[in-house]
């Protein structure tokens, strides 16, 4: 049995250790946020965070994720409240078809953890997932907006 922590929930599954995490999540645990796009770690639609770091789960064996914290797009909201990146994504109407957007949002969350005030070059360097609808300019704007929101949230926390 492989033990996973998915979005704060302990899950156990009896699968081959080399089954890609993507398929363990989607087909075994019914966690459908991570999407299949290419299967060769090119597009990033399958992105999840493992201990906060982005991983292309289509090319990542489930056994390597055992005992570690896996966050998918479904697990980003806290107590039903959208994560600031999700809020910014809604405010800027970033998605079109939306298929890649779960992965894109998780990439942005990770970027803002590392660089709370990213430069345009930081965003360019970090956001490497493919979006076929061409929502790139809006992602840029939404990341900047989320950075502001999160800066605001931090100072509010300090006061409290």
């Amino acid at each position: 049995m492989i033990k996973l922590n998915v979005n704060g929930r302990a899950r156990e599954l009896d699968v081959e250790p080399d089954m890609p995490l993507l398929w363990a999540l989607r087909d075994e645990l019914d966690v459908k946020g991570p999407k299949y796009g290419c299967g060769i770690a090119q597009c990033g639609s399958c992105t999840v965070l493992i201990d906060g770091e982005p991983v292309r789960s289509c090319s990542y064996p489930v056994s390597a994720a055992a005992g570690r914290k896996i966050t998918t797009i479904e697990g980003l909201a806290q107590r039903g409240r959208p994560h600031p990146v999700q809020q910014a994504w809604m405010d800027h109407e970033v998605p079109q078809c939306g298929y890649c957007q779960g992965g894109q949002i998780l990439m942005a969350v990770n970027l803002l953890q590392k660089k709370p005030n990213p430069s345009a070059a930081d965003i360019d360097a970090h956001m490497t997932n493919i979006c076929r609808c061409g929502t790139y300019a809006r992602m840029h704007a939404a990341i900047n907006a989320a950075a502001k929101m999160m800066g605001g949230a931090k100072s509010a926390d300090k006061k409290a």
């Binding site: 459908k32 797009i73 479904e74 980003l76 959208p82 999700q86 109407e93 970033v94 998605p95 939306g98």
Partner: peptide
């Protein structure tokens, strides 16, 4: 449709 997409609730054929 955007809120469902962003919150990870959107459902596609797959």
């Amino acid at each position: 449709d955007i809120e469902d997409t962003v919150m990870g609730r959107q459902r596609y054929g797959i």
